[in-house]
Nucleic acid binder design. Sequence first.
DNA 1: CTATGTTTTCAGAAATTTCTGAAATTACGG
DNA 2: CCGTAATTTCAGAAATTTCTGAAAACATAG
Lengths: 194, 194
Amino acid sequence: MNLPPLVQTFVLHFGEMGSRWGINRTVGQIYALLFLSKEPLNAEDIVERLGVSRSNVSMGLKELQAWNLVRLQHKPGDRRDYFATPDDIWQIVRTLVEERKKREIDPTMTLLREVLMQEPASAEERHAQERMREMHDLFELLTGWYADVQRLDTERLVQLLTLGSKVQKILEMKDRLFVVPGSKKSRRDDAKDR
Amino acid sequence: MNLPPLVQTFVLHFGEMGSRWGINRTVGQIYALLFLSKEPLNAEDIVERLGVSRSNVSMGLKELQAWNLVRLQHKPGDRRDYFATPDDIWQIVRTLVEERKKREIDPTMTLLREVLMQEPASAEERHAQERMREMHDLFELLTGWYADVQRLDTERLVQLLTLGSKVQKILEMKDRLFVVPGSKKSRRDDAKDR
DNA sequence: CTATGTTTTCAGAAATTTCTGAAATTACGG
DNA sequence: CCGTAATTTCAGAAATTTCTGAAAACATAG
């Protein structure tokens, strides 16, 4: 491995981290390297810096492309493929969440919907279905929230995250201002309706 | 594998899903089984239903306990250990996020802080550090948000998630109401400050 | 303390994943 | 077309992870 020490530390860490996610070491290292690199790199650059085989790099890049995590670029007068990560780190977050949702949540939701259609044949199955219903509803709530905030531009998203639960305060304030005093319908019920 | 069909479908799916996370098939299956079960199960129950070895179940349960994902229980007059997942699915989500943060985000933050302290020895290292700074700040924002909403009780959390980006509307309304007209300091700046 | 039921540990077998080198394919310039 | 550079594919080697059975450790009742 042929890298400035500071870069190497990070690359090695991401390689290890990769295993905790479903991703292998080399893929993690390639990604870390591209993320830190100012210039796009070609496959041979990566081979030299990481000290792994050319074919391994080829497969790793293919996987990263399948995840939409790297962009393929070309330099004029050079027919090699160059790879880079988006400059905007928020774009990376969005892609990551999107792809993980596609691979993990969506298939699970499909399965849950299927199983929830079936008629339970016993008390045990009935209870199992109830649990699956809970999970289904939870995922629906979370993906709904995600679909919603995902549409925000980054500036507003950051604003929202910065506020955190302070939003709560503002909601309470809104209530005090706008709920007709003595009205039966509180905001809490509002939230449950939807 | 000795399970009602409906349960089996789910258990198998979670087994496969486990690999996408850093978790192995058996651990995923054990967890799915406990999640769906009305009654707590002991190790031998799990062996029978999943058709895996006793030692494998022992190791799987140990791992799930390390993740705080199962509770150990006892029945009067029975000295075997019984295992169950929390009834409250939101508790499960909280534990999962907490544990993943502990295992993935926290060590990465430590590493980033260390590397960001060092003096860059080249333009390449300087750029790499800038990128790491971006990642560091991103994680800080996200974990800050998390620490904040994590404190909310479930009802309020659900309320917040249900609103999604509609919170935005309320924020805008708040602005219109409370920003002194003609003031130099907009809400946007506010958000950036912290 | 002993007998028995229960859980844990762990060395090696089995399965799976990762990685490589060689060959095949693709893509382009001339 | 042809030749060359670049990339991909893929069979098998290497490494890693998972799983098992046997033994050890632990715990409780008697």
